[in-house]
Design a protein around this nucleic acid. Structure first.
Lengths: 224, 224
DNA sequence: CAGCTATTCAATAAAGTTCTTGAATAAAAA
DNA sequence: TTTTTATTCAAGAACTTTATTGAATAGCTG
């Protein structure tokens, strides 16, 4: 093998590894997951991921250097977003690979959700079907910006933080299906806990907007 | 946010990062690329990636710990292979993301192939069409094991190492299209250089078996 | 303009990764 | 049984990455 060829290969795989290195840190993956939901400021990302602002900024710059994310200055804030929809696809491929190959992921999830709700007892297919057909009240508990960017058809928007104050808006005669950002986001878990404590028939749906879209189902957007 | 939830999230993203860390090293990506072509022993992998055997073994164990690869002892040798076809899909997703997001990849490739062959002058669509229709002689220059595991329809198998000795088997009246493992494998580049020096009409095809399969085109396998 | 806020930069300590070397192991061949 | 071969293990040096701190910057607000 010529040394020219060796040098070319080394250089090429080093480029590929830039992407790999960008997704080699748990915190950076959490930030990337948040960015896949929609654009956010450094401050918001830091709060949501439980990091210091300086540390968050440093991680975001790594994502930017690998061209997975891009930044835009808007007044006082810097807003980050994924550089291309392909980045979200890649993140989901990584997550799905980890789910199938690493038994620990399922184990951790089962342990965390154990006893929190009667999710296991529910037939997921019929639940989705009932959501799809509007036979249950669908509740989106994410922050309003995310709801506005895209939500399930006919979903009611009550962010988790306002849920206790706005219980009157919810039906007592129908089952309420709460959803949030997807299987690893626990907003809807907390929502279901609150609702059940208040005597509602509430259940959590694992699927978030991203998963819903991937199934080819329709998404409503706020027309601004 | 409850600290229980924070601990769950940290644990989950740490699992995802196991996959990320596995693909964070250029050499490990090169090994993974080779494994996506088919199973190989440690020795062969070390030689092909230009690494020491001990180092290769260490990298392979990282891939195994992340459940991206698995090992099987066969006599004196240990044979490694990808743990699941999904791993190959993931690797290709990473590669394709790097190709679209990192301008350096295309730049490096252009620079390496510059002057090596008149590839740029060829219309890729009509080339593929002619290959597909059998209008040109198709030459597979990979090692025979890889040819046997799957090759393009009607492709002739002459490993690069035997090419000079077996020139008589090739037609002088038709164009010869050489292919190997894909865009970053340079076996076919060398083959074309040899063939042209010997007066053949030869051209390189970037697509390898993996890419051919992904287009949904048929692959022939040796019936053993 | 002065003060305020959000973000980045720079320096550093702690932890982790990579490659090398030489020894250990385990299966096959002599 | 001894030798050979392929692989793994263990320890160490060089290097990289991560989180922390405090200072610097850049744009808004009064």
């Amino acid at each position: 093998m010529s040394s020219l060829k060796r040098r070319y290969k080394d250089a090429i795989y080093e480029q590929f590894a830039r992407v790999g290195k960008a997704v080699a840190s748990p915190k950076r993956l959490e930030l990337l997951d948040l960015l896949c939901q929609g654009e956010r400021t450094v401050e918001v990302l830091a709060r949501e991921a439980g990091l210091s602002v300086a540390n968050t900024s440093q991680h975001l710059q790594v994502l930017r250097a690998a061209h997975l994310a891009e930044a835009e200055k808007r007044g006082l804030h810097v807003v980050y977003r994924i550089a291309d929809p392909q980045v979200a696809d890649f993140f989901h491929a990584l997550r799905s690979l980890a789910e199938t190959q690493l038994a620990e992921v399922e184990q951790l999830t089962r342990r965390f959700f154990a006893g929190k709700e009667g999710l296991e007892a529910v037939d997921r297919t019929t639940l989705l079907e009932r959501v799809e057909k509007g036979m249950v009240a669908v509740l989106d508990v994410r922050p309003p910006e995310e709801y506005r960017a895209g939500h399930l058809p006919n979903a009611l928007s009550i962010p988790l933080s306002e849920l206790r104050r706005r219980l009157a808006e919810l039906p007592r005669d129908r089952e309420i299906v709460a959803y949030c950002r997807g299987p690893y986001c626990a907003l809807s878990v907390e929502a279901v806990e609150i609702l059940r404590a208040e005597g509602f028939q509430a259940i959590r749906m694992e699927e978030g907007v991203q998963e819903w879209r991937q199934r080819g189902l329709s998404i409503e957007k706020e027309t601004l």
